[in-house]
Amino acid sequence: MAPLNPGDSFPEDVVFSYIPWSEDKGDITACGIPINYYASKEWKDKKVVLFALPGAFTPVCSARHVPGYIEALPKLREKGVDVVAVLAYNDAYVMSAWGKANQVTGDDILFLSDPEARFSKSIGWADEEGRTGRFALIIDHGKVTYAKREREKNVLEVSDAESILKAL
């Protein structure tokens, strides 16, 4: 599949893996059970910001990318965003722990796993190592309204929260 562009429909049958946050499993050492997250179905009638990155607990991702979205969350909600999700190649256990390490609770930001970078590869946006690339999408009721990939792995010019806020 070609990269997604504004005006495209979000692909059907997109399934990620994740561990829903729960208070009883809120400690970083507690493990939940991974389940499928049927993104196409869940996002059909919602305004969604999906940002993707190469890996959890990595320098740019942990120091700037995710914290920027955590900080911007109230402004994203003000602009009508129903779902904010971060996507990486890491498995659901790592993504869950990363969410807890960032003190994200509930469904404020979904920490989703792109197993084997299937989704990223399907849109041609996996990185050179075959992992999830760094990109961002805005999906409004099943239609892509923003789709940009970073020009380099450790650059934040089009997938950061500030860029998304400007695009909304």
Results as ranks from 00 to 15, higher is better:
P67L: 03
S17N: 10
I123Q: 06
P59T: 05
A72N: 12
K153C: 04
F111T: 05
W21T: 11
K75P: 04
S62C: 15
G106V: 06
L50K: 12
I33M: 09
Y37A: 02
L53H: 15
I70V: 14
G55I: 02
Y38I: 06
A117Q: 10
A117P: 03
K25G: 01
A147Y: 04
A97M: 13
M1P: 06
I19D: 01
S22Q: 10
E23C: 01
L168W: 08
A72G: 11
S9H: 06
V60A: 14
A39K: 09
S159I: 08
W98P: 10
K41F: 07
A88G: 03
F10E: 04
Y38T: 11
V155K: 08
G106K: 03
S159Q: 02
G106T: 02
E129G: 00
L50S: 10
D107F: 00
L4M: 04
P3E: 09
K44M: 01
T145I: 12
I19M: 12
A63W: 00
N154E: 07
E150W: 11
W125V: 04
L73W: 13
K41C: 00
A63R: 13
S17V: 01
F119P: 02
M1W: 01
I109T: 01
Y146I: 06
Y18T: 10
K153Q: 15
I35S: 14
A97N: 03
V83E: 00
N5A: 11
F135I: 02
S22T: 10
V84S: 03
D140T: 00
A161F: 14
L165Y: 10
L73Q: 05
P11R: 10
L112M: 11
L76Y: 07
I109K: 04
F135L: 02
L76P: 02
P11G: 09
L73G: 05
W98D: 09
L137T: 07
Y89W: 14
K121A: 12
G142S: 03
K100Q: 08
E162Y: 02
F111E: 05
W98K: 05
V104G: 11
P34E: 03
D13K: 15
A161L: 10
F10Q: 01
G32L: 13
R151A: 15
E42F: 07
T145C: 11
T132K: 10
A117F: 08
A56S: 04
I123L: 00
A97P: 06
L87P: 07
Y89L: 08
A39L: 11
I139E: 00
K148D: 13
V81F: 09
S17L: 05
D140P: 01
G7Y: 09
D140W: 05
I28H: 04
L50W: 04
V60S: 06
G26C: 00
D91A: 14
T132S: 14
Q103I: 10
A56Q: 03
K100W: 02
A101D: 13
C31R: 15
D127V: 02
Y69Q: 10
R118L: 08
N154K: 08
P54S: 04
A167D: 02
Y18M: 07
M1Y: 06
W98Y: 14
A88S: 15
G142K: 01
G99S: 00
K153M: 10
E23G: 07
E129A: 13
V15Q: 06
Y69V: 06
I19P: 09
G32W: 13
P74F: 05
K75R: 13
A56K: 06
E12L: 14
T58Q: 02
D82Y: 03
Y69N: 13
D82N: 04
E71N: 15
D91W: 09
A117H: 04
